[in-house]
Design a protein around this nucleic acid. Structure first.
Lengths: 211, 211, 211, 211
DNA sequence: TATGAATGAGCGTTCATTCAT
DNA sequence: TATGAATGAACGCTCATTCAT
């Protein structure tokens, strides 16, 4: 039985604990996993907004206090779950070859955009957490924003869109227009068009000016 | 005694009622004005987030029920007040001559951007209400978003920025980058630069590609 | 056009008004009738408890104040409506020949009992108003209670139930047992039996002791 | 560490929870007791009707949320308190020897009747809750109604009032007449006589017919 | 770690009733 | 008479978070 340094990521909270026994470590991870699983269950059934800590601990069979021993707050759990969902979409994107056309680019980004706007609550939370809520260290969702720009940058470095500005700036612009297009999904004024349709004109004008 | 169509705007709530007297309408407007004035007072002293309905009715000298007869909820009042503040900034913008350079444009927009990000609470509320809260009819803040694009469009029609795309599309792009730049104000990663500094590269690349 | 003395019964409120014109009198009565009709409508659709003054005046096309010009309060309207419903049942009872047996008596009283317990709200209100709310003059429901005892007394005077006590005391007892039987309708403990089944043993023991 | 079945009675709300500690249960009971004590205080000073939840939690030194964690609503607390007051009167009644005469019986029941009619609010609430509010499980007041009949039954089994009907039926009749007599206390028509005076003729005719 | 009772501050609601016009 | 905005005093509720055990 050897003591190992284990870094448990409690949502945003980081704890360095010397774990003596594998059994204890296992129990901790299991509890955490049960909480996350319970949350995913609820989200699957009733959506993100309807998630209540009460319900999570009930399903997980733990006490409320236990929840907060594992996650700084409810949003930390949301950050974690939504962040990992986005990461899955980004994993998929990384598998793709760099899109050759703006049209391609948009099609590639659509699944991610759909998820990010699946609920107004989710989109709001993503926006709020994209900058890690201003104060704290970077959380899962904020990480995915960095990763999105990285992936886009890598793509744009390999395509011949614009030469006058850096690939990173282009990527950030794409990101800004994605947000814009997604935001209008919740807007009573512009909800006739799909996100893709709204994104098209922007990205054409941004990535291929003058053409 | 002629019947007139009176439209009382209860926050988001609209009622069309056939009434007979002007006097009653006046009292209604006065009460409403007292409530708004009380709210402005509190905001002036303690900021938007600190506003409590209880305090508003106390200062306005009305009953709580009266508040909710005039505004669907607290957010409806906020929508109204923030919306009219933004409108004042837009009034100022309309007085200005069309900016000749991107730098000029940014400087013109700064006061508005500063206001919209004066409190995280305000910016969040603006984002949330910019799409009219997703469901209901367009509220004051959402109206200002339309007006922002109109003003920008009018400007861009008179300047020689881009000829390959419509002034309106340019305007929408400017708007998207404004949001992007403002959002990063609350972002742990990028808060070293001012909004103007963050906006510069985007707008240059957007409005004067290739230069 | 002759001035007539007209006594308008405003629910509990009595007003003596010298009415100059038949037209005005007519309008008053019409308004009142519209209010009652609107209330009956609502009760027919949603029951007594769901009745809201707001809704009544909306349907009647009058202002709220008008309602209270005609009825002292909401309960006065309820008193009126429920009272006249009970009176209809009593009119029916008066048509009947005096019941010869306890069984007959119970069957005769059933329709009335059913109505009085159609809603918990109605039964509560009847109980509360049966004594005219303790303070004020006798209202419609309280009148019907007197009338019930009168009818029962008349019946019992003609039947040979008990000779040792007055017909009126017998009638009051029947009334007490009716209330008891009706009350248990709302009781979770005894709701297996019908009102008639519960009333039987009481009335047999009350009206035909020793038999 | 043995798990015990703990039953927390949240007013009407019943929860069966498997818990581990006695200490927690103790705290819960203490808080609950503090709330009840605070309520009793207020009632002692200002009467039942004047009780305000706000005031209760203030005196008890708990949060409002705590109140509603212990009692479904204000009425549930009232049910509890009034129910236990009635139980005290019933405890006293149980100590008494079975009354030999109707007069005795009435005198024995008077203290209870006086309490039940001490406030119109109390009598109304008792009537309303005597049937367990129609829907839910039996509450404290409803329990006392059952107990009243039980005690009366036991008495009547030992006395020689009526032989032709069961003691229980006699008891239920006495109960019905008690209610009738109490109700008339709040009645404008009959409030000249005391409850006892009103009860006399009924019970004589009920328990000693023909005499 | 785990527990779960307690917290708490404010929001929204209710809706019969009043009163100035 | 008619009008309808205003009243008002609680109530119930929310539900993430804390903390003593």
């Amino acid at each position: 039985m050897t003591a190992v340094n284990k870094k448990i990521d409690h949502g945003q909270k980081k704890c360095e604990i010397v774990v003596m026994a594998r059994a204890i470590q296992k129990r901790t991870l299991e509890t955490r996993a049960r909480l996350v699983a319970a949350a995913e269950d609820i989200i699957g059934t009733s959506g993100f907004e309807a998630l209540r800590v009460e319900e999570v601990v009930l399903r997980a069979g733990t006490a409320k206090g236990t929840f907060f021993a594992h996650f700084r707050d409810k949003d930390a759990l949301m950050d974690l779950i939504i962040g990992s969902r986005i990461d899955e979409y980004l994993d998929d994107l990384e598998q793709l070859p760099p899109p050759k056309t703006v049209e391609d680019l948009i099609q590639s980004l659509m699944p991610l955009c759909e998820f990010m706007t699946c609920e107004r609550y989710v989109f709001d939370l993503i926006l709020r957490y994209s900058g890690a809520a201003g104060v704290e260290e970077i959380g899962p969702i904020a990480e995915t924003f960095g990763r999105q720009v990285e992936i886009l940058t890598a793509w744009l470095e390999q395509t011949g869109f614009r030469r006058d500005i850096s690939a990173e700036l282009q990527a950030e612009g794409v990101h800004a227009f994605m947000i814009q297009a997604m935001a209008t999904k919740f807007c009573a004024l512009h909800n006739s068009n799909s996100i893709a349709d709204r994104l098209g004109p922007y990205l054409n004008a941004w990535l291929e000016p003058g053409s």
